[in-house]
Write a protein that binds this DNA or RNA. Structure first.
Lengths: 343, 343
DNA sequence: AACTCTTGTGCTCTTCTCCCT
DNA sequence: CAGGGAGAAGAGCACAAGAGT
């Protein structure tokens, strides 16, 4: 096979020449537009088939009046993260309905990298962008938005006006988790969260505070650990908490990897049946552990679906005021969150 | 903000007009080509900035002689699967070095859907395609390849000639797992695999057979369970195995979800400390279970990296004979694979 | 050397011609 | 000859290559 021979892709002109019609007629046949007799249609189809002609969407979108690229951009934090991956998949499913493909990118939560990816998408003239905003300023996003690019923010809301978003009930669900623990009699409930710059972290922390307030518990600074980036940090932070004179009897871990780190320490100290634990975000096999891990489960597919619906509505010309959809998370009881306080 | 006003994207002509130069000069400045005086360069840059000009890559690639779209396609089975997601991410990282973006799609292991995605990529004139071939015939892949599109198959090899591939040591590693179990004295080792049509399944089964043969164990048909699609099927299949008059003392589960299903049944019957288990493919928290799950770990990032290197080499014009890279999987001992046979 | 002009890329849109009732 | 539909011709989309000034 000499597949790499410089065999030029056949063009409409080639098809037109073979079928002995004008290129415009070929265009009509290819795009199923009226104005071509059935005999001509057949001739053109046959010519296209023998030449192996395939339309060039980039050339087409350049000329067409709607100027659509039939492509959207999806900028997440890390495509290899299961949460992000599920999100991407949900968007892809919706996009396929419209024959739209998805350009995917990982911003690494770095505003500079996000800006680069953004311009990269812009030069390709994508029809719209679904984006998990990187921490820090959203200048690049706002600029892009103000140029008129349809945009939906997912998982984190925009810090500027006029843009749709889809988020989870971070605050309310966190409060519910604390209420659940307090309802069992826990009075010393620790909070373990990751980077404070993340909007989701802040919301979950606020929800934690609301939970304490609702039950009349007093905030103890020594039970708060934040900026835990990754399971290792969470592991040592948990150890520190347990070494307190009055250690917590329950832990609320506000992120996936933090939950894992906390679990490791509880296990190491054989406390996993004596210290309660509720984590934000579900993870595989959470039910197989001993005890099963009680979590707040986000409806990730719904998050992605909603974001996709919004972006395609905007692309289709929807002019309604910005929507800020909120998808509820649910408390999944598996055991670790139902451990009562000692005594 | 009236972001959606039909403000036309500024073109090179607009910039040229404002800077009072020809479009070609603008082109030179934008692409950092020589032949523009420093004073003119500044004038053009300023004009581009005030207009908010951004080059149109689709128009550019149409005209340029290399005709690159600076975009590649990545077709996997399911982007929300952690394995696929890690692969995508690895390819993306490599692509970023070349300023290339990634069009991602899920084929659902459906040849028809794969063909659709393939033509969708083709109409966008991607520079190359990394693809996890769907089961069944690879006609569409072969056709696309024969048109000259650079292509690399990942995780599964091509059934046609002239195309690069990157796979894991499915067979050898499976054999090693069986040898490991046999070395502990196990004589009744069961095989649980998923869809037989999958190349990886077949390879792992063959490795299992080789392992038996190397240690002089006889194949027992009743210890073979295949076509287990998902954890539920694996769970019941495991139950059936354990109900045999002479049940297996060790299980080799040839896929992720099958491993999970088998574990559930072992747990339900309190056999997880008495029946050995080795699974193919690592998964999060495998070390947190009791006992830790011994697995064959694939080096997914390496798989993706290798695939990306190959596709970019081909895009750059590499004409060397097709490469078939094989990335080794490693046996990670965590306990479940080290359970000795009873007695 | 520094710049401009013209042409061409694959396709679609608008305008126009032709031919048949 | 009016009317209409099938098809052709040419311009233009945003940009780049090459020859020319």
């Amino acid at each position: 096979m000499d597949a790499r021979s410089a065999r030029r892709e056949p063009t409409m002109r080639d098809v037109a020449a073979l079928a002995k019609v004008s290129t415009k007629t070929v265009s009509r046949v290819i795009n199923d537009l009226p104005g071509a007799g059935s005999e001509v249609v057949e001739r053109v189809r046959a010519a296209a088939r023998t030449l192996g002609y395939r339309p060039n969407l980039t050339a087409s979108s350049l000329r067409r009046s709607d100027r659509r690229s039939a492509t959207i951009g999806v900028l997440l934090e890390d495509l290899s993260n299961p949460f992000d991956a599920a999100l991407l998949r949900a968007v892809e499913d919706r996009a396929r309905q419209d024959g739209v493909l998805v350009l995917a990118g990982s911003s690494e939560d770095d505003p500079d990298l996000q800006r680069e990816l953004l311009t990269s998408l812009a030069t390709r003239r994508v029809d719209g962008i679904v984006v998990m905003a990187a921490g820090g300023h959203q200048d690049a996003l706002q600029q892009e938005r103000e140029r008129g690019t349809p945009m939906v923010l997912v998982d984190r809301p925009p810090t500027f006006d006029g843009t749709d978003s889809v988020t989870t009930t971070n605050r309310d669900s966190s409060r519910d988790a604390v209420l659940h623990l307090a309802g069992l009699g826990h009075r010393r409930i620790a909070f373990l969260g990751d980077r404070k710059t993340l909007w989701t972290s802040q919301e979950r922390y606020t929800g934690y505070l609301e939970g304490l307030a609702h039950t009349g518990l007093t905030l103890r600074e020594e039970l708060i650990r934040t900026d835990l980036h990754g399971p290792d940090a969470a592991q040592t932070a948990t150890a520190t908490l347990l070494d307190l004179a009055e250690p917590p009897t329950a832990l609320f871990t506000a992120q996936n990897l933090v939950t894992v780190g906390a679990m490791r320490t509880l296990r190491d100290r054989e406390l996993h049946h004596r210290t309660a634990l509720i984590g934000f975000d579900d993870f595989p096999l959470a039910d197989m552990l001993d005890p099963g891990v009680t979590v707040l489960r986000q409806d990730v597919p719904a998050l992605g679906r909603r974001a996709a619906e919004l972006i395609f509505a905007r692309i289709a010309g929807d002019q309604s005021p910005p929507a800020h959809a909120v998808v509820p998370a649910t408390l999944v009881h598996r055991g670790s969150g139902e451990v009562p306080p000692p005594g």
